[in-house]
């Protein structure tokens, strides 16, 4: 894997995992991603959202869940600007912004997404900036979720 990152685009971390290794619990997320939809696991007993999908609700310990479609928008909760490439072959994508996004339609903590935030100026991006999800369709199985600023 190392050394084979394809053609890099500045600000965009390349897909390095091409297979989501999905199980029945996580598969609905990837199925929806193929259709450019963001769905999130939601406890069917107490309504708490959680991300990534998992067996138990951390709020009420229920195993019951459903997938609920979200608007796919949110706000940057925190982020870092990665300027130093951790692999020499990643020089061309640095600097890139990666961070934590709180999703609209959820309670926030517990359902945040950790993502690459693209199409932003690394020198002006800030916490609280509004963003929307965009999926890169890598292959039949993997659609990599990223966020970008909501176009005004």
């Amino acid at each position: 894997m190392a050394g084979d990152f394809g053609t890099l685009k500045k600000g965009q971390f390349p897909t390095i995992l091409f297979d989501p290794h999905a199980d029945p619990t996580t598969q609905p997320f990837w199925d929806a991603a193929k259709e450019d939809r963001l769905v999130c696991q939601q406890c069917s007993d107490c309504g708490t959202f959680r991300m990534p999908p998992s067996p138990f609700c951390f709020n009420c310990q229920s195993r019951g869940y459903q997938y609920t479609e979200l608007p796919g928008t949110g706000a940057i909760y925190s982020f870092t600007v990665v300027r130093h490439p951790l692999h020499p072959d990643l020089i061309d994508c640095c600097p890139y912004v990666a961070g934590t996004v709180e999703l609209d339609g959820t309670q926030g903590a517990g359902a945040r997404m950790l993502v690459n935030i693209i199409d932003v100026d690394p020198d002006t991006v800030k916490i609280g900036d509004r963003v929307e999800i965009v999926f890169e369709h890598v292959n039949d199985e993997m659609s990599t979720p990223r966020f970008r600023p909501i176009s005004k």
Partner: peptide, 26 residues
């Protein structure tokens, strides 16, 4: 690779420094 790890694999957050930077930034 666990099914949950796939949710963070492609995001570019690779090292402890990337994590602590987010705490510091907030």
């Amino acid at each position: 690779v666990s099914p949950s790890a796939a949710f963070t694999a492609n995001n570019g957050l690779l090292s402890p420094g990337h994590s602590f930077a987010q705490i510091a930034g907030r």
